[in-house]
């Protein structure tokens, strides 16, 4: 029983990391109608940037802060330069462009930093906690805590501030937003900036666990995609819940189904994706979005 609880917590932790990326994906989709497959590689570049800053002597926290801001700027730039021109074009174009970005960013990381696997420092010291008789590590606690914090911050920003209202309006009805004086392009950039920040957080959480190399984020984004497919692509809260479910299912099936080794673990989110798409493509918590697809 204790073992099961441990695995469950691990699943929640992994799911929380997926949810960080899933929130980013969902936010971007809700705002600009783009399922940004390159989000994981953008997070990868951010994580490498943190690593680079640390190597140059900055402390971990300062590095993370600097890159957080930098990645938000970069995210806004990516929208402005690449996505904005094709946003109103055929949907197929945008999807292909995001895969182009994925390939470019992934190889940019490889080109700049090589393909060596590197260790990455963890934000928390490796301590062990205990809830009742169930032990769990600080990284588990951190991941879950970070997700809760992210959701809280997003909620406060989106529901409690003026700019959050403007962002929601721009996502909901771009034309009417213009008519009330909202610069929707700025809102889209804000959305992409927020998403990039969320992505950076997910990268920084993943790297200490699996070590830093250019292939680090591909399985994360697949799982995050599975999470948003499960939860409904336009619904950020549903995406978060979906991602957590994917994390739990992944860990539990990896533990209890013996022939799923480490190499086949990726089949879990892939199977989930296919399963959901076959049965209920709109996802469990779908937001009516008939025009998007």
């Amino acid at each position: 029983m204790q073992f099961f609880a441990q695995q469950l917590l691990e699943g929640l932790a992994v799911g929380s990391i997926y949810a960080s990326l899933g929130l980013a994906l969902s936010l971007i989709y809700r705002m600009t109608g783009v399922a940004n497959f390159a989000q994981g590689e953008m997070a990868l570049l951010s994580t490498y940037a943190v690593w680079q800053l640390i190597t140059w002597g900055l402390s971990l926290w300062i590095a993370i802060l600097v890159v957080l801001v930098g990645s938000m700027v970069a995210g806004a730039l990516v929208w402005r330069v690449v996505i904005k021109p094709v946003q109103r074009a055929e949907h197929l174009t945008v999807v292909i462009v995001t895969f182009g970005l994925y390939l470019a960013f992934n190889n940019l990381a490889g080109f700049t930093w090589g393909f060596l696997t590197r260790p990455f420092p963890s934000i928390t010291a490796r301590t062990l906690f205990r809830v009742g008789s169930v032990p769990f590590s600080s990284s588990v606690a951190l991941s879950i805590f970070v997700l809760i914090a992210e959701c809280a911050i997003l909620f406060v920003i989106l529901k409690g501030t003026r700019i959050g209202l403007a962002i929601r309006a721009a996502a909901e009805n771009p034309e009417s937003s213009l008519l009330v004086g909202i610069d929707i392009n700025r809102m889209y950039m804000a959305g992409w900036a927020l998403a990039a920040g969320l992505g950076t957080v997910s990268g920084v959480l993943v790297a200490p666990r699996v070590f830093l190399d250019p292939t680090m984020m591909i399985s994360i984004i697949i799982s995050a995609f599975a999470g948003i497919v499960l939860g409904g692509i336009g619904n950020p809260l549903g995406a978060a819940i979906g991602c957590i479910c994917v994390g739990v299912i992944e860990i539990l099936s990896g533990t209890y189904i013996s022939w799923i080794g480490a190499d086949l673990r990726i089949l879990v989110p892939l199977t989930l994706i296919v399963f959901v798409l076959l049965i209920r493509p709109a996802g469990l918590f779908a937001v009516e979005d008939a025009l998007r697809v």
Partner: peptide, 22 residues
């Protein structure tokens, strides 16, 4: 030059072409 350069160029060309020369 570099193994990664291939993918980088491919990726960039997708982006450049889809945006400016579909």
């Amino acid at each position: 030059f570099n193994q990664a350069l291939v993918g980088l160029i491919y990726g960039m060309t997708i982006v450049i072409f889809m945006v400016w020369m579909p």
